[in-house]
Design a protein around this nucleic acid. Structure first.
Lengths: 252, 252
DNA sequence: GGCTCCTTATTTACTCGGACATATTAAAGC
DNA sequence: GCTTTAATATGTCCGAGTAAATAAGGAGCC
């Protein structure tokens, strides 16, 4: 039986230390789901491992069985675990995980992210975003262009060193994806955006954005505004390649 | 293969379970989540609507509040609803839904699928699969090629009119995605595959697959086996375009 | 004797019902 | 108009009982 971590839960004479395990404003079950999801994604529980029983685990966490169960349902919904009577709840193999679920991505990046996974997401980005720029060039309307232009202005006003600047960057890419009129692409941005965001902060932490990204963005905008799918796609491809280059360079 | 439900489960003959008439295919909370998810995705509850309270709803469904709540947690995990004290449980706007979650996709296709959404997924497929073929051409090893070849052989043996043939088709595309060594792409296939599967069955229902898809598949395989990324990508693009053409043609 | 097959027994998740706590909104009061 | 108070729905807790799936045990058969 692969047991949890500290099972040293001794119900000795009432010295229960302040039962307030809710670290943040998240609801209790959310905190549990977060904790468990983090532990699973970070490999603390390997695929195939079976968690200790509901009663034991919930008591170890000092929460009710209901709260623990609801947290497990969340993980089940995201494909991380599976539970059957008598067999217990076991961690599923990685290929069953909903790796594009925003929460799962967030958990994957909360610890020490797997290099392979980062590469996967950036490769996906390099595939999807140029194609999205092409579609956007064909389908954008006036409102889309205004949203992109506003985002660019905000990027220039604040730099990428500020939180507002990062938000503007995200908004620019989101506006492009919305302009594709493709819901599936928009949803993908939620997952990809998490990866991009993490690496951007990472680059910033390891000193200096080596390049001014604004001209690249403007080229993308110009292509989309002109309705030139080829130019927009090429410009976006260049932008993503440069970002990947910078990230790779900053990671040594 | 992510469709773990099997809708047309025959109710057990003779033994009519009068006590728990709630659909007894999955676990109870799974049935509730399925029912609610279907109702939300199909538009029965519009975004912004607030569901009736837990006690009322659970009694209306004739289940305990715990089971109902666990079902709602599943929907919350998939971004379909959000619940806050006093405010109740409300349906979130579409752009908050995890549209790439396998279950959500399954629910979307269980009813009368939204044409726009089908178009979105096929557009995504047209973007992702050719790029995947290019990557596979560069990274495949002997085992990958064997898997593809076996799948092709199975496709020829059984035709696409049989279930085994459809499975072989899926396996061929899955083998390509696995050969990219990119987990994010593999996961995408789960969602895209659901759409492809549905439309394939649709085409079959509405009379005749008008074209033999095998030569197109073989061209893709040849490109990958030769390590020719450009050829593999072009062949896959042609394949997807033809499939989209057929689907569009069959939908009038 | 060794084997399969069926029955039983146990373990675990699953469902239930009720109770209390908490947070958020809306109304009442200043 | 702002603060305080009350109402309400979700959130959490508890304990009991049910259903399902595996492991153990015994009857029958080769």
């Amino acid at each position: 039986m692969t047991n949890a971590k500290g099972e040293a839960d001794a119900p000795e004479s009432g010295k229960t230390p302040a039962r307030q395990p809710r670290g943040t404003g998240r609801r209790l079950r959310g905190a549990i789901a977060h904790k468990l999801g983090l532990a699973i994604v970070s490999g603390e529980y390997a695929p195939g491992d079976t968690l200790s029983g509901e009663i034991a685990f919930s008591e170890a966490l000092d929460v009710s069985r209901s709260a623990y169960r609801e947290a497990v349902q969340v993980l089940t919904a995201k494909g991380l675990v599976e539970s059957r009577p008598k067999a217990g709840t076991r961690v599923l193999p990685r290929n069953r995980w909903n790796l594009l679920d925003p929460d799962v991505v967030a958990w994957a990046f909360a610890g020490s992210p797997d290099i392979q996974f980062i590469r996967s997401l950036f490769e996906l980005r390099a595939i999807v975003e140029p194609a999205a720029a092409r579609l956007a060039a064909e389908r954008r309307d006036r409102a889309d262009l205004k949203a992109m232009k506003d985002a660019l202005a905000a990027m220039r006003r604040h730099t990428l060193a500020t939180e507002a600047g990062l938000a503007a960057d995200r908004e620019f890419h989101d506006a492009i994806l919305r302009a594709t009129r493709n819901d599936a692409l928009v949803v993908l941005s939620a997952s990809i955006g998490a990866a991009v965001n993490w690496t951007t902060q990472f680059k910033q932490r390891s000193r200096a954005l080596p390049r001014d990204p604004l001209p690249d963005h403007i080229r993308v905008y110009d292509g989309i505004a002109a309705g030139d799918a080829e130019a927009a796609g090429a410009a976006m491809r260049a932008l993503v390649d440069l970002a990947l280059e910078d990230t790779r360079h900053a990671m040594e």
